[in-house]
Simulated assay, not measured.
Amino acid sequence: MLCYLFTFIGGIIFLAIEKRSRLVLFHSLQSVMTFGGLMIAHVLTGFVPLIGPLVASLLSMLTLILWIVLVVQAAQGRWFKLPWIGDIAERQLRNL
């Protein structure tokens, strides 16, 4: 749960310190990929004139909802996979 609680930074920290739990490593990878991608999307919307602020607002709401869902799922100990990012995180987990 802590990997998601501190979003991108929490994921990086748990990737660095956790070596045994596959569940924690999976959630850490998924957190880094999800919130890292959302941070990049937020930055890119800043360069879009007129509709950029609207898209940034929608991204903020999506980020908040996604953050709440991921924290709750991880706190319950579930292996909750997001559609594309979860598959990528699972493949990366096999390589660790």
Rank of each mutant, 00 (worst) to 15 (best):
I85Y: 01
G36S: 02
M33D: 02
F14T: 00
I68E: 07
F6P: 00
L93I: 06
I51C: 05
V48D: 06
T7H: 11
F14L: 09
L96C: 11
G10I: 05
A16E: 10
P49T: 07
G11F: 05
G11K: 06
G37W: 01
L96S: 14
L58R: 04
I65A: 15
I88C: 06
H27G: 02
Y4F: 11
K81E: 13
R22E: 13
I17R: 13
G10C: 08
G77Q: 06
M61R: 08
F26M: 03
T34C: 07
V72L: 11
F35H: 03
F14I: 01
A56E: 10
L59M: 04
T7F: 12
V43Q: 10
S57Y: 08
T45F: 13
R91F: 12
I85D: 00
W84N: 12
N95G: 12
F6K: 03
W84E: 09
H42W: 07
L38H: 02
R20P: 06
F80N: 13
V55L: 15
T45W: 09
D87C: 12
Y4A: 05
M33H: 04
A16N: 13
I65K: 09
L29Q: 02
I85C: 03
S57W: 08
G52V: 09
V24A: 06
G86M: 11
G37T: 02
I88E: 06
S28L: 00
L96I: 15
G11M: 09
S28D: 01
A41D: 01
A74C: 11
L58G: 14
G46F: 10
W84T: 14
F35L: 05
R20D: 14
I17A: 08
C3S: 12
S31R: 01
P49A: 07
G36P: 02
L44P: 01
L44T: 05
S28G: 02
P53C: 10
H27C: 03
A75S: 14
Q30M: 06
K19H: 11
Q76R: 15
G77M: 06
V43I: 13
A74S: 14
S60N: 12
F6I: 12
A16C: 10
V71T: 11
V69A: 13
L82G: 03
K19W: 02
G36R: 01
S21T: 10
L82E: 03
V32H: 00
L2M: 13
L64T: 14
L64A: 15
F26V: 03
L25K: 09
N95T: 15
T34W: 03
L15M: 10
I13G: 01
I65R: 10
L82Q: 04
S21V: 10
L70Q: 08
A56V: 01
A89S: 15
L15V: 04
L70N: 07
Y4T: 04
I85Q: 04
Q73D: 11
G36E: 00
W84Y: 15
V48M: 08
M33V: 08
R91L: 14
W79K: 14
Q76E: 15
L58N: 08
F14C: 01
G77Y: 07
C3W: 05
P53R: 08
K19G: 06
K19E: 08
T63C: 02
I40Q: 01
D87M: 15
V24Y: 03
R78Q: 14
G37N: 05
S60R: 10
I40P: 01
S28M: 03
G11I: 08
